[in-house]
Simulated scan of single mutants.
Amino acid sequence: MALAWKAFLIDLDGTMYHGSRMVPGADQLIAEMNKQGIPFLFVTNNSSRTPGDVARSLVEMGIPAKEEQVCTSAVGAARYLADKDPGATVAVIGETGLVSALEEAGLRITEQDPDYVVQGIDRHFNYETLRKAAGWIAAGATYILTNPDLLLPGSNGLMPGAGTLSAAIQAATGVVPITIGKPESILMLQAIERLGLAADQVAVIGDNMLTDISAGAHAGCGTILTLTGVTTEQNLEHYKEKTGIVPDVICSDLQELMLWITGKER
């Protein structure tokens, strides 16, 4: 099966870095993939930054990256809405990356009777934000969630993600959102389309069984788990049981992954 994988979709948070710290071996892995001409895209559920910002941050860490190699859940949400309802009005609960993506897609941002509420990670989320969101949704706005991550690996450990904020909005409204990012299929299918390959020719690399690996399995891709972030040796069996998924490949770190992906340990 592994030999049939022609390209890779690589997670960022917890796989390539923790906050501002590069995961050891990430720079060598990407440099070797570039050297061997192995196609890949970075696919991240994080909606807070633009693809350009993400690429620059990776380069600053020493990881080779280009803006066009980055797929974010913010851009995925914007493309989904622009295709579905061009020029729609949108209330945003999120940060720069989400606002920028929606504006660039031609969507109109407003707090007055929006057609959609689009929510991502928002580190300024507070009671007033929750009140507004509940009001917009109660008035008929469709609720779009960029990604359901409950936790994100940060420089100082795990921190709440967009899914944790969404849990409050769902509790207040009783409305389940349309989810764009992993483990749902919308962002994944957009990324696979960009590669120009069939899903079974692509493998997903990530640290999170609930998002990355589940997304890969649901999309029909191969799955490569790295024990570099949310999933560890200690909780792996718990996540296997919770998801019902066994990854095709499990690597303890990125050095092991590099040896495997470049064919030296198959």
Rank of each mutant, 00 (worst) to 15 (best):
M1N: 11
A4L: 13
L12E: 10
D13S: 11
D13H: 11
G14F: 09
M16V: 15
H18R: 14
G19C: 02
R21V: 12
P24L: 08
G25A: 04
G25S: 03
D27I: 01
I30Y: 08
A31I: 00
K35M: 11
G37V: 05
G37E: 10
G37A: 03
F40M: 05
T44A: 05
N45W: 05
N46I: 06
S48P: 10
T50H: 04
D53C: 12
A55G: 09
A55F: 05
S57Q: 14
V59H: 01
E60L: 13
M61H: 11
I63V: 15
V75P: 03
A78K: 06
R79C: 08
L81H: 07
D83S: 15
P86M: 08
A88G: 13
A88R: 08
A91D: 01
V92W: 00
G94T: 01
E95S: 04
G97W: 04
L98Q: 02
A101V: 02
A101G: 02
E103K: 14
E103I: 09
E103D: 07
E104R: 14
E104D: 12
G106P: 03
R108P: 03
R108K: 15
R108S: 03
T110Q: 01
E111L: 10
Q112N: 14
P114T: 06
P114Q: 09
D115R: 14
Y116I: 07
Y116D: 06
Q119T: 01
G120V: 05
H124C: 13
F125K: 01
A134R: 15
I137Q: 06
I137E: 07
A141K: 08
Y143S: 08
I144L: 07
T146I: 12
T146A: 11
P148D: 00
L151A: 13
L152A: 09
P153W: 12
G154H: 09
L158G: 03
P160F: 05
A162N: 02
A162L: 01
G163T: 07
T164E: 02
A171S: 11
V176E: 14
I180Y: 05
I180E: 01
I186W: 03
L187A: 12
M188V: 13
L189R: 14
Q190P: 06
Q190R: 13
A191M: 09
I192W: 06
L197T: 10
A199R: 10
A199G: 04
D200R: 15
Q201K: 14
V204I: 12
G206K: 11
N208Q: 08
M209T: 10
A217P: 00
A219S: 14
A219Y: 00
G222M: 10
G222Y: 06
T223Y: 02
L227P: 13
T228D: 13
E233D: 14
L236C: 08
E237C: 00
T243L: 07
G244W: 03
G244V: 04
C251F: 07
D253A: 05
Q255P: 00
E256A: 15
G263L: 02
K264I: 12
